[in-house]
Design a protein around this nucleic acid. Sequence first.
DNA 1: GCCGTTTTCGGCCCGACTGTTTTCAGTCG
Length: 572
Amino acid sequence: MTVHNSEIATIFDKVADLLEIEGANAFRVRAYRKAALAIGTMPQCLADMVEEGADLSELPTIGHDLADKIAEITRTGHLHLLDEIERRTPGDLAELMDLPGLGPKRVHALQEMLGITGIDDLLRAARTGELKKLPGFGPKLQEQILHTLTARGGADRRLRLRIAEEIARDLVRHMKTAPGVGHVIVAGSFRRRRETVGDLDILVTSAQPMQAVDRFKAHEDIAEVVSKGATRSTARLRSGLQVDLRVVPEESYGAALQYFTGSKAHNIATRRIAQAAGLKVNEYGVFRGNRQIAGATEEDVYSALGLPWIPPELREDRGEIEAAAKGRLPNLVTREDVRGDLHVHTTASDGTASIQEMAQAAKALGYEYIAITEHSRRVTVAHGLDEKRLARQIDEIDRLNDALEGITVLKGVEVDILEDGTLDLADSILKRLDLVLGAVHTSFGLARTQQTDRILRAMDNPYFTILAHPTGRLIGRREPLLLDMERLMAGALERGVVLEVNGQPDRLDLTDIHARMAKEIGVRLALTTDAHRQSDLDFMIGAVDQARRGWMEPAGVVNTRPLHALRRLLSR
DNA sequence: GCCGTTTTCGGCCCGACTGTTTTCAGTCG
């Protein structure tokens, strides 16, 4: 069996937690954390690399020691070091670290003084009042822990970006009406356009910070103000979402925006550059000694460090700083570059609007073309089309194109890839189409080699043009297919097949990481919405976000091309 | 434990807020 990167990351995170509780060297702890973070978002499968004899110590944050430990984990499924530490520390102390107010020092004290080894012990100690007597603890903390443990459940789940967007819009509107407020912007992972966000970070500029903080806590959705100071406040919404407010003076706007946008890893990397240049960066500006030399805009901040402005989507410490220093930042694809949508359903299968209605909606967005791509017969719940019905739709689209002005409707299909890798419709009908999307909707549970082979076999069909939602994952609901993504992409490149970045808020498939991989391998992408109604065409922004986070440029995306060029690219 | 236009040894991001403190440690982002 293959050990996944995420499992290695989990092991390293646990080692970090337990070492920290034991009071180990803080930088050693940090090394495990950094490695876990990096491994969790690496596109390459580490287990495969070990198998191939690659030198893992060349990877960032991985040295010789951790490379050996990764090899050990992929070969045995275990890490001797972790087993050892767990023998020393009974129970599950690491899970206590997740509770707000508890860090390594206090968890250590809990074990040392009260013999607490897990959540149950902790709850008991809080109820009996033993907890508040410990040095470093008190009645407030005991109360908070009790509250967290009894009111637990689901509140710490990350929110999909599209949902967060609705909440954020409302909060921003609320803060804009506060007296004396200048900028109001949502920073954090929201601004970096991550697929989910754990909290909202709202940055406000004002000369009267207290007024802004007061205005914030008056918002009707706020259930509880967790902390509140002169320049920052943390609150929990009724939905459970945490919101952090930060108020800075106008002259610090750029520095605060940079700081608050993160990511943490990106910020640490930028501060190290500053340090090396004898400068200091904090949320108020860039400083030489006590003198502020930048801070009003993000451009100034980066420029003071000798760097061009870096788009937020890239700020994950995945090579963007090195690229910026060399003047090699990508020219990221934008929503305006997209000239049409290539994955759209209508009432013929499970959509709610007609072909003409979808075409008109696309035209209103300024598109040049739109592809109609219904499900095939196998997907019975979605009313999938067989050859006969698809032939009728082809004729209907031909007639419609004669009548339509200013937009072209392309003839397509989202044909099912059957378990043996054949397609759900005959070649005789596929060859009459402008494009053929292939997609997996069944047999999600195949083993990795089998699943990869199945899709590659489907791509062998000469009419297959785009692999739709390649991993099949649904955020928070369905795990991605087990796939050897490198082999799949190499196969797609060989066959001239395009991979989709599906913008449905719960799909976002390919992910940012795989989009980046596609770019490096040279596979082209199609940004689509999988729209089932007119308003779904707005999901394009989700696909663009993922592509941007994957460093994609317009040239790597097929539907940034005008119609004639697109047709050329799609004909294999 | 990682890493290197100061270095293979000696560094390792930085500040706000809380609670328990009597001047600050711990946690958090």
